[in-house]
Design a protein around this nucleic acid. Structure first.
Length: 187
DNA sequence: CCCTGATTCGC
DNA sequence: GCGAATCAGG
């Protein structure tokens, strides 16, 4: 695949929307997230307040740079300048644009609307829960919250999610009640 | 282990 | 210009 105008447009759009490189790559197809990131940089639209922002990584990310066979970048300025600004005259100190939605948090369930069987199942799996923190949640970890968010006793299930769902099997059971069982739940 | 973006450099 | 490999980090 190549970067046609259309694909570049898509890239710009999604990147602007705060989509991750991998998501964009998945959407475009035929490219990896690396390709997307590479393109993003080449297009000059990089910085976008997100997960990883490390100024120091630049200097370190050069394991093979021991001897530069290519062109000695700037003989006039030794290693001291290894991490300076690339060459983009973009004085943009304040950047507050997109606020990615991120992972939508699941709604706190009301216990009185859930079948006893499902509840029992949940109590059981909560023992096996991975007890992940917010940061550790991924697209394939159960995002069911357990405990009181205001206390230390709070974590997310974290078990493997059911394909396409935000929760593990057990929690999907209590999160997505069939209409049939929802009828006359009260009383 | 899952993921994120950043960087380098051979092609 | 492209993107895999690699790095650094949440």
């Amino acid at each position: 695949m190549s970067w046609t105008d259309e694909r570049v447009e898509m890239l710009k759009k999604m990147w602007g929307e705060g989509q991750s490189a991998s998501q964009i790559a998945k959407e475009l197809g035929g490219v990896t997230r690396n390709a997307v990131i590479g393109k993003v940089h080449r297009l000059g639209l990089s910085n976008r307040a997100t997960a990883a922002s490390k100024p120091e990584a630049k200097a370190k990310a050069a394991p093979k740079a021991e001897a530069r066979p290519k062109a000695a970048t700037k003989p006039a300025e030794p290693a001291a300048r290894a991490e300076a600004e690339p060459a983009a005259p973009k004085p943009i100190p304040a950047r507050k644009q997109i606020i990615p939605a991120g992972q939508p948090l699941p709604p706190q369930p009301s216990a009185n609307e859930i079948s006893p069987e499902a509840l029992a199942k949940v109590s059981e799996i909560e023992k096996k829960a991975k007890k992940l923190s917010l940061m550790e949640l991924t697209e394939r970890t159960c995002k069911w919250p357990v405990g009181d968010p205001a206390t230390e006793n709070f974590w997310f299930c974290g078990l493997p999610v059911q394909q396409g769902k935000p929760y593990c099997e057990a929690h999907v059971g209590v999160a997505f009640q069939p209409m049939s069982s929802r009828r006359d739940r009260r009383r």
